[in-house]
């Protein structure tokens, strides 16, 4: 049963990512959070973050303060390498998901 739920979770994540609107679906159904929890494996999280970064346009840059400025491909590379910048990007992504779960946008 657990395996089935896990694979359903993966399918849902893939579906949402490719549709580029999974955030909205995620918000509408908090029960999906439980499925997402199964995606706790580091590699899977990296993959999720990379997929999300792929939605950034070519001409976008991200300033991370004194760390510098990065384009989409550089960000993806940092996440895949799991270096300091990559960890920061992953942290922001997970923070976002936790924030949504806690309703951060509606508390402020």
């Amino acid at each position: 049963m657990k395996k089935e739920v896990r694979s359903l979770g993966k399918w849902l994540i893939w579906k949402w990512t490719t549709k580029r609107n999974w955030e909205k679906l995620f918000c509408k159904n908090w029960r999906n959070w439980k499925l997402f929890k199964f995606m706790s494996n580091e590699q899977e999280i990296k993959q999720l973050v990379v997929e999300r970064l792929k939605t950034l346009p070519d001409n976008a840059g991200l300033s991370i303060g004194a760390q510098g400025e990065f384009n989409r491909d550089e960000l993806i590379s940092h996440v895949q390498n799991g270096d300091e910048i990559g960890q920061k990007i992953i942290e922001v992504e997970l923070n976002f998901l936790r924030g949504l779960k806690e309703g951060i946008l509606y508390e402020t």
Binding site: R20, L56, N95, G99, I104, L105, T108
Partner: peptide, 16 residues
């Protein structure tokens, strides 16, 4: 847009 959707997580980060 995709770019604007990507902005949300960084906005939340800065806010927090």
């Amino acid at each position: 847009t995709a770019l604007e959707s990507s902005a949300i997580k960084y906005l939340i980060w800065n806010m927090q």
